[in-house]
């Protein structure tokens, strides 16, 4: 397939001078990224750090037959992270390189499908929600130094009922009684004797 494509393109030449170094077996992976707020004749890619602007230009031409007029590049640094799930040594992950190619023919990304049932979106959302809650308490414990307390959690029905009942005992609206038969020593030492 690629052979026929290369054969067809050999007759057509781009508007730029192609590189002379022949790379027969490239093992790069480039990622096409959606940027809806950019002009339609721009295409944004994540490329390997070793890529140059000329590399991307020739790669797009040789592999996809896409003609470009200009390429911009940017390298994004990442935040310092810890190894071993946040407990190990500090290190900075290698940066990411992005390139924006200006195309001769405009390209607009297709829309995201409205029905996401094939991707099991409902289950995904539920999973994300519970995961977010767990990660939030985890973050509070490790990063902010606050140990998560149940009293800081949103008030549940059971807790509200219990609180109201306790308030009634304190106000004297309810008296504390128990049917359990106490030992004689409790009767003599406790408040029951004083009454």
């Amino acid at each position: 397939m690629a052979e026929t494509a290369v054969g067809n393109l050999a007759r057509r030449l781009p508007n730029f001078r192609l590189g002379k170094k022949k790379v027969f077996l490239p093992s790069h992976v480039i990622t096409f990224l959606r940027r809806d707020n950019q002009p339609p004749n721009w295409a944004h890619f994540e490329v390997p750090l070793t890529f140059t602007k000329f590399d991307l230009r020739d790669y797009l031409w040789n592999l996809y037959g896409v003609e470009t007029t200009k390429v911009r590049s940017a390298v994004q640094q990442h935040k310092v992270e810890r190894r071993q799930g946040g407990r190990g040594a500090l290190y900075r992950p290698p940066p990411t390189k992005y390139m924006t190619a200006e195309l001769t023919r405009p390209f607009v990304w297709p829309e995201v499908p409205a029905d996401l049932q094939p991707w099991n979106k409902d289950l995904w959302d539920a999973r994300e929600k519970s995961g977010n809650l767990a990660s939030k308490t985890q973050r509070a414990r490790h990063e902010e130094g606050n140990i998560g307390s149940p009293s800081k959690d949103p008030i549940t029905f059971d807790r509200r009922e219990l609180r109201q009942r306790a308030q009634k005992y304190l106000n004297g609206q309810l008296t504390w009684e128990t049917d359990a038969k106490l030992d004689e020593k409790w009767r003599t030492q406790g408040g029951a004797e004083k009454k």
């Binding site: 690629a2 052979e3 077996l25 790069h28 992976v29 480039i30 990622t31 592999l63």
Partner: peptide
């Protein structure tokens, strides 16, 4: 060679 380039496209 053709198979390699098809693989490149698929990975992208």
């Amino acid at each position: 060679h053709a198979l390699w380039w098809a693989c490149c496209r698929e990975r992208n």
